[in-house]
Design a protein around this nucleic acid. Structure first.
Lengths: 181, 181
DNA sequence: GAGATTTCTTGATTTCAATCAAGAAGCATA
DNA sequence: TATGCTTCTTGATTGAAATCAAGAAATCTC
């Protein structure tokens, strides 16, 4: 559960967990439901306790996928979250998904009661390091290899169409890359 | 000077400015000198008071440019700065450049003495919003148009070679895009 | 479980930017 | 101001991925 995940972020006392638990809002999302909508300010971080989600932007009629979020990960638009400007991106549940929502407001409250919660800043780490990955100098097969090496589960969870968009290539190209190992 | 720039970020008292000034380290850089080196953790934000700089990564022998920093802007690798992991990027002065360095340590000190300094988080905004720009679904001429609309001065300041790398295209392609308006 | 829709694959063709190449213009250094 | 170096431009060619197309497989819906 969340406790083991918070342990990854830093050292928290039982009382700290107590405080966080009170502020978390549990939500159940069905497939294709939106957690965040284009034009809103991202005011919360979402912890995915089961299921998966992805972040995208509308490009003509298609969805241009910018990030994939899996079970056990925090999911948010960090640009909007940090700078409090409206985001161009939406976040959509990829399947039936259970999340815990932790609002910016709640985080500020937690930091005020215990400095241990400054460690919550690390929630941003995953989102940030994933952006470092995006490297458009890579060829399609390099991108694909990088993905199976770093996040192999992604291929079991998301349709290839979404993965292709995430990797900035057409589904046809992804299919050909895959068939050539 | 810096005072007018801090005014853009938020409301600071004269005493606040006093506190900041004491912690700033002025530096003079000659062309091609490095502010940050690949492999280091970015521990400071740099305010460019004159000149310009750019951020890049080595790709084979070439420099792959990831961000352009101009006079009056804060310049840092925000991923490394926030998450305190070593960066793959270097920052290099594009010409004779004068900067003020504000260390992470100094920022923490400032926040401890006055909550007004929490507003310093906005230093990250420029770096963050620029990453939103990077959109590799765009064609070369769309990228170029976007750049002249959003930051026209860039073309006066940086050699086309660097701009081409920043826009993820060859200098030849940039040259052709420019000649066709 | 039949029918419909979406996803995935495979093939043929096209297109756009990279590469290769070479010459012109601008800058530095001596 | 001559000599080389880097930057920029323009042209010809190539190549890799997009597009177009159609059929197969998987999934959803009633």
């Amino acid at each position: 559960m969340l406790k083991t995940d918070l342990d990854k972020i830093g050292r928290f006392s039982d009382q700290d967990f107590e405080s966080v638990s009170k502020l978390l809002i549990a939500k159940q999302l069905s497939k294709n439901e939106l957690l965040l909508q284009q034009g809103q300010i991202c005011q919360s971080a979402f912890f995915i306790s089961s299921g998966s989600a992805y972040q995208f932007r509308y490009d003509d009629i298609d969805e241009k996928v910018s990030d994939l979020h899996m079970t056990g990960e925090w999911c948010l638009n960090y640009v909007s979250f940090i700078s409090q400007i409206p985001t161009k991106y939406s976040i959509k549940a990829n399947s039936q998904t259970r999340i815990f929502e932790l609002s910016m407001h709640a985080i500020h409250h937690l930091i005020a009661i215990s400095p241990a919660f400054l460690q919550l800043g690390k929630i941003l780490d995953g989102a940030l390091t994933r952006t470092q990955y995006l490297d458009n100098a890579m060829t399609p097969s390099e991108k694909y290899n990088h993905l199976i090496n770093s996040r192999p589960q992604v291929l079991q969870i998301f349709p290839l169409k979404i993965i292709a968009s995430y990797l900035n290539m057409t589904p046809e190209t992804l299919s050909r890359v895959r068939s050539s190992f």
